[in-house]
Write a protein that binds this DNA or RNA. Structure first.
Length: 1079
RNA sequence: GCCCGAGUGGCGGAAUGGCAGACGCGCACGACUCAAAAUCGUGUGCCGCAAGGCAUGUGGGUUCGACUCCCACCUCGGGCACCA
């Protein structure tokens, strides 16, 4: 059988389409309804690795089928393509083979462009976007700077995944099984300063936004799991014990007598702490009242001086405290806290409460936090330095009388004149002073033994918390070690060292085996029952999640249970499980699975009645969650697994982060007029090895003037993660050439949000989440029109993967790699794309082996199409190819509505029963192919086309010409070249006198519509069942009554046999389907 | 371990409460041919000569009727992995 010349045809039409730009799309924004008629279908753009593989063939020409159909349906379809052009492979090629990464990348793009064109996909190439073009990354940088200004981008020292071979930081997502996704070397943890994006701020919206999206539930679920929301409580545990305190404290008083008395108290309390006055450490101008300067100025100076001289500064009583090295004057605090209220009208407690509020406020403003508070005093711990302000809540006695005029009978001595009131403050007796200082001692103790917050999702099990565990990274461990809080410091140090040296891989592999060391010398107090419980450090607790410390409830947590078992820690059951699950499924369990399985499963999880929980005994665990949290003063809290997104990469081939570091002004954004910060050409692409980008070696580029002060400054040398580039490319497609903005608002309104986004399942938790975050952040910045909402993709579909013929993933080592080029050469692009469309359902994440024989079936099918066209041309049956022509012959106007096509055709075809049958078959095929394409079930659409082709081949006597042109249109999205060729051949022949002067693309034709009336049949095949088993079937009128159906059925021999003379107990009749006799 | 998805002929798959296996591959036989390839035609789940029986991972349930819905288990694929 002759085969069509795919080489000639495909090249010819690819050229024609390109020349005539039939796939270029206009924005067509309309006032009022800017999106009317517009349809945005998006495919993940490829990385230009340089070779097109079977995966590309699966990714691009298959959704093209959908895009083409939408276009034929009359939609104004945006179907763009571009290149995700930054990334490591280019740089690795540069390092390995000395090739310029830019050259490497752009040459690959040139090559891939040709390859992509050969697929016959209807991309609008005029909108091509390349992320490595300065015209593109100018806007990546610009948007980043908007984030920076909004506080969404920040720098922080953080433990990052470090690949020792690639010498770069990896995102969590790029670490696979503890190994570098790219090179496979083991990833280690390293502390480095990184640029981060605050994706965690959007955790809740990323979660709730999913609800309204038309995505598959499994994709949403994967994102939900990644965000990892859990609701629970934060509960504080006090730490006690008799630790040996040591260190040096500067007591902010030059009053020697007071210092001595204080030292006495320290001794009595067992604090081996040296007490010093400010004078002793060389601060002379301590007494702020003798100074003419304002209190605040003085305080700051003092604070700086103190901070440099001693590690821990305690400023107590009548002095201030530090926040991040700056001292706050308590008198000022008091004034501001009172905010005009009369001090005398308030009780001591009320004043204390107001001051506490104010402390919290300023602490928050400066990035610190009030970490603990207790009745008589305050403790403030900030992130880096910490300081304490202890204020005894004593009554302050004020008098107008000067020193000498005091009543000698009073045990008081005047101390100083209060600046705030102008009155004399009287100091109490020594004894009273000692009493007053006691809370200060307590405060200092508390500083060393602060209470620890834990996060738990099970506050209802608090009474069962029999020990407390810190993550090795918890700051308390380092602090406690430094202050010699622990008796077994050596053991702890060793454990920490071991834990730290573990690579991510080791930590994962040893996951099940619990290790840990007790922190001897301290205990924690279970706030629920006041019990003293041991405190441990163990690496099964993660530093990065929750508070980095947990309360362990071994009776109701599997991990705690294992740990407790190993180290012989007490286990206390506090929930009496209601076997809800068991009860619910009593039926099935009774007959099926053994009940013990269900009971065992209830051990860790689940609700129940509280036991061993004091006054909460008998309470339902769900209720107890809130009640116990309230009881111990805890806070309901929501935690997320999602971490902030580390976007900096110490690599060359990426978007330079557009900031400047100035020694005077700090981090400065590059000004808009200086964007883009162009990636400089360099010679040596190797990273520095200390984790700096190769850009650090580009000295000329590096040195720059500070945009703020004009002084010498340096550029940031890190580049952005490529996930940043791909987080907004779909916006640039809307307006790819815009030099004044990332995209014009009207054009964004014309296209966004994306109607349908097709891509690989591997991007579910990375690209898809990142770009949703990015879009939401842009939305909040006002860069996305409000009416579009804050979700970029309305519908998302993940595709599966193509395996090698052996059913394994294709890999060179397995030798099962399919080279699509080979098949293109042999069979042509139409055959290959159609075979891949036929291989399995595209909307499901299946994996389909490439069957080298299977493709022959498609090749045969297309050959048959070709031959049928040739044959009908020869028979000159093809005079009225086009339905429009038919319609004209029918006397109707040219503008006949599509939905009437079938009726027109029916009139023509109904000359014979065979023709009528064919017309009906065609009508059905239109319906099925249309619906199947919509659902991405290209396999069944093709199956329907195959059936119709067989019908046409068989229907020799039938008038098939009109049917054939409908068939061609239905086939055209699948085999765009072949159908275009046949279509135009037919047209030129029907237009008498040789080839038509111009050609008319089938791809711009209207998509056929079916006639619902023609779907209706007069008869149907009645299925006869006896007890649900099919026994017979026969043709009956469509609207047959049950009685009639019964009568006819019971007459039939087969039925009589099956019924075996028994009388039916019940008859079920389903109209248009079946009749079922139950005996 | 947890979460998600899937288990149907020799193979890819179809049918989402009503004829299990559409369509394609493969295979067998036939036609054409000196012959082969290609092409066309017929057949093709398993057991059975047949009538008939058995069949959608396994066991149970719901239903007149289950590949389809429910429960439990098994296997495979993907994701996460000590997230308290």
């Amino acid at each position: 059988m002759p085969s069509f010349d795919h080489k000639k045809i495909e090249k010819k039409w690819q050229k024609e389409w390109e020349r005539s730009k039939i796939y270029e799309v206009k924005d067509q924004p309309k006032a009022g309804r800017p999106r009317a008629g517009n349809f945005y279908t998006l495919i993940e753009f490829p990385y230009p690795s340089g070779n097109i593989h079977a995966g590309h063939w699966y990714a691009f020409p298959i959704p093209d089928i959908f895009a083409r159909k939408k276009r034929m349906e009359g939609k104004n379809v945006l179907f763009p393509i571009g290149f995700d052009a930054f990334g490591l492979p280019a740089e690795n090629a540069a390092i390995k083979r000395g090739i310029n990464p830019k050259k490497w990348t752009y040459e690959n793009i040139d090559y891939m462009r040709k390859q992509l064109r050969s697929m016959g996909a209807s991309f609008d190439w005029s909108r091509e976007v390349i992320t490595a073009d300065p015209e593109y990354y100018k806007w990546t940088q610009w948007i980043f700077l908007q984030f920076l200004k909004k506080g969404l981008a920040y720098q922080a020292v953080t433990a990052v995944n470090w690949c020792p071979k690639d010498k770069t930081v990896l995102a969590n997502e790029q670490v696979v099984g503890g190994k570098c996704e790219r090179c496979g070397s083991e990833v280690v943890q390293r502390e480095m300063k990184q640029w981060m994006l605050k994706i965690t701020d959007y955790a809740e919206r990323l979660l709730s936004g999913l609800a309204k999206l038309n995505w598959k539930e499994e994709i949403k679920e994967a994102q939900r799991n990644w965000i990892g929301k859990s609701e629970g409580a934060e509960i504080e545990f006090e730490i006690t014990g008799t630790p040996t305190y040591s260190g040096e404290v500067v007591f902010a008083s030059n009053n020697q007598g007071k210092l001595k008395r204080m030292q006495k108290l320290f001794k009595a309390a067992g604090l081996a702490i040296k007490l010093k006055s400010p004078k002793e450490i060389g601060i002379k101008d301590f007494d702020v009242l003798e100074d003419g300067k304002t209190l605040a100025e003085n305080s700051e100076k003092k604070a700086r001086a103190l901070a440099g001289k001693t590690k821990l500064s305690v400023l107590a009583d009548d002095s201030g405290f530090f926040i991040d090295g700056a001292e706050i004057d308590p008198m000022m605090v008091k004034r501001n806290a009172l905010n005009g209220k009369d001090e005398k009208s308030l009780s001591v407690e009320e004043i204390g409460a107001l001051m506490l509020e104010y402390y919290k406020k300023i602490a928050a403003e400066r990035g610190g936090k009030v970490d603990a508070e207790w009745r008589n005093s305050l403790c403030l711990v900030t992130s880096e330095k910490f300081a304490i302000h202890v204020e005894a809540r004593r009554p302050v006695i004020l008098t107008d009388k000067p020193h000498g005029a005091m009543d000698p009978s009073l045990p008081l001595r005047p101390l100083y004149m209060s600046r705030a009131t102008g009155k004399y403050v009287l100091e109490q007796s020594e004894d009273e002073e000692m009493k007053e200082l006691l809370p200060i001692i307590e405060g200092i103790k508390k500083l060393f033994t602060p209470s620890i917050k834990v996060f738990t999702t099970r506050p209802d099990t608090l009474f069962g918390a029999t020990y407390l565990v810190f993550a090795p990274e918890h700051p308390f461990i380092a602090m406690g070690n430094e202050k010699s809080l622990f008796e077994n410091k050596k053991e702890i140090d060793e454990y920490l060292k071991k834990a730290k040296s573990k690579t991510q891989l080791e930590r994962q592999q040893g996951a099940k085996e619990k290790t840990g060391v007790e922190l001897k010398g301290i205990k924690a107090i279970n706030p629920a029952n006041g019990e003293e419980i041991p405190v441990w450090v163990a690496d099964y607790v993660l530093g990065g999640y929750g508070t980095g410390a947990i309360m362990a409830v071994p009776a109701h947590d599997e991990r705690d249970f294992e740990f407790a078992k190993k180290f012989a820690l007490p286990i206390r059951k506090v929930i009496n499980p209601v076997l809800q699950h068991f009860l619910q499924n009593a039926d099935s369990i009774a007959s099926g699975a053994p009940a013990s399985i269900a009971i065992e499963a209830e051990c860790w999880e689940g609700a129940g009645e509280l036991i061993n929980s004091g006054s909460f005994d008998g309470m339902d665990s769900a209720k107890a969650k809130n009640e116990i949290t309230k009881f111990v003063g805890g806070k309901i809290k929501t935690q997320y697994k999602l971490r902030d997104w580390v976007v900096s990469r110490q690599r060359y081939w990426g978007v330079p982060i557009p900031v400047i570091h100035c020694p005077k002004c700090g981090v400065q954004a590059v000004q808009d007029k200086d964007l883009p910060v162009v990636l400089p050409e360099i010679k040596d692409y190797l990273p520095t090895g200390e984790g700096k980008s190769p850009l650090a070696k580009a000295e000329k580029w590096l040195k720059v003037k500070c945009p703020e002060c004009g002084g010498p400054a340096k550029r940031e040398t890190d580049t952005l993660d490529t996930f940043v580039d791909s987080s907004w490319y779909f916006l640039r497609y809307c307006d790819p050439k815009n030099a004044d903005a990332f995209a014009d608002e009207a054009k964004i309104k014309a296209w966004m949000p994306v109607n349908l986004y097709s891509g690989g399942a591997e991007h579910t938790t990375m690209h898809l989440l990142y770009s949703r975050f990015w879009y939401k952040a842009m939305f909040d910045l006002g860069l996305i029109p409000k009416e579009l909402g804050d979700e970029p993709y309305r519908e998302r579909r993940n595709r599966g993967i193509i395996l090698g013929p052996d059913g394994q993933k294709m890999s060179k080592s397995k030798g099962n790699v399919i080279d699509p080029d080979e098949y293109i050469k042999k069979f042509g692009s139409d055959t290959v794309r159609m075979y891949l469309a036929f291989i399995g359902p595209y909307g499901e994440v299946g994996s389909y082996p490439w069957d080298p024989h299977g493709i022959l079936g498609i090749k045969r099918f297309l050959d048959r199409v070709w031959n049928l066209a040739e044959a009908s041309a020869k028979k000159s049956l093809a005079k009225a190819q086009d339905l429009q022509d038919l319609a004209q012959r029918d006397g109707a106007s040219r503008a006949i509505p599509q939905q009437r096509d079938m009726r027109v055709l029916a009139n023509f075809g109904a000359e014979t029963t065979e023709s009528a049958r064919l017309v009906r078959a065609t009508n059905k095929t239109i319906k099925q192919v249309s619906e199947n394409i919509e659902d991405f079930k290209f396999n069944t659409a093709i199956s329907a086309l195959m059936i119709l082709l067989s019908d046409m081949e068989k229907g020799e006597g039938a008038k098939v010409d009109g049917v054939f042109s409908i068939f061609l249109k239905l086939l055209s999205p699948f085999a765009p070249h072949l159908t275009e060729e046949i279509w135009n051949k037919m047209r030129s022949k029907s237009a008498q006198g040789g080839p038509a002067s111009g050609w008319k693309s089938i791809h711009l034709e209207k998509w056929p519509e079916f006639d619902p009336k023609l779907l209706e049949e007069d008869t149907f095949e009645l299925i006869v069942q006896v007890n649900g088993k099919m026994r017979d079937k026969f043709e009956v009128p469509i609207n047959i009554s049950q009685a009639e159906a019964e009568r006819l059925t019971l007459e039939r021999e087969k039925v009589k046999l099956a019924l075996d003379n028994k009388k039916p107990r019940k008859v079920i009749f389903v109209p248009k389907r079946l009749i079922n006799f139950v005996v």
